[in-house]
């Protein structure tokens, strides 16, 4: 291809046309913070972790503590949750350690996408677990709160349950959309490049 040869010739001699960066500039640069994708994924997942757990600290109160004592199953669920989250943190750490720019491009993208997948599972866990416990606590709390005022009969009817359920689903959907929005922009190009490499190697 004649044009490509022409380009190659031009490419190899053009070195001196770039504005040269001084050693001083390089010193300054290497002390700056990276703004790389992986770092942003890490920051966002840490923020998510803090926010999701921060919410539970905010909503805890004396009434809630009393409620937990009355419903020991919540304590069990909390313990399970912490064990699972701890497992996720170990996985996060292991993944980030394994990401290195010295891998081949395909390996590197694969690792980043795998890291991302773990974050996805983590979010899923939080949405589903949080949604279910929230709904359970909501239903029980509602039931008991109303019982005192009325007779001792169960006041939960189908329409009440439906309202709580719909609200819970809406909340889960909202969190999911938010999360898609945050990561979607980061990852679309990466997935595209990975698919391209996979396509070449089929």
């Amino acid at each position: 291809m004649k044009e490509l040869d022409l380009l190659k010739k031009d490419w190899q001699k053009e070195g001196n046309t770039f504005e040269q960066v001084s050693t001083n500039d390089i010193y300054v640069m290497i002390h700056k913070k990276s703004s790389s994708l992986v770092k942003w994924i890490l920051i966002v997942s840490i923020l998510e972790f803090l926010i999701l757990n921060g919410i539970s600290i905010f909503i805890s109160s004396k009434e809630y503590d009393a409620f937990v004592i009355a419903h020991p199953i919540i304590k069990t669920l909390e313990i399970i949750n912490y064990v699972v989250i701890f497992g996720f943190i170990i996985l996060f750490y292991k993944n980030y350690k394994s990401i290195s720019t010295l891998n081949s491009a395909k390996d590197l993208i694969k690792k980043i996408l795998k890291t991302r997948k773990v974050v996805t599972y983590y979010i899923f866990w939080n949405i589903i677990f949080g949604g279910l416990t929230g709904t359970y606590v909501g239903l029980q709390g509602f039931n008991e709160g109303m019982k005192d005022a009325n007779t001792n009969a169960d006041v939960l009817d189908t329409s009440n349950i439906m309202v709580v359920l719909v609200f819970g689903l809406f909340l889960m959907g909202f969190i999911w959309c938010f999360y898609k929005l945050v990561y979607g922009t980061f990852l679309s190009r990466l997935s595209k490049n990975y698919n391209e490499l996979k396509k070449i190697d089929l």
Binding site: S36, W40, A105
Partner: peptide, 13 residues
């Protein structure tokens, strides 16, 4: 080459 290309392809956001 490797580090620079990897950065351009994967890390640059």
């Amino acid at each position: 080459y490797r580090v620079a290309l990897n950065t351009a392809i994967t890390l640059y956001r």
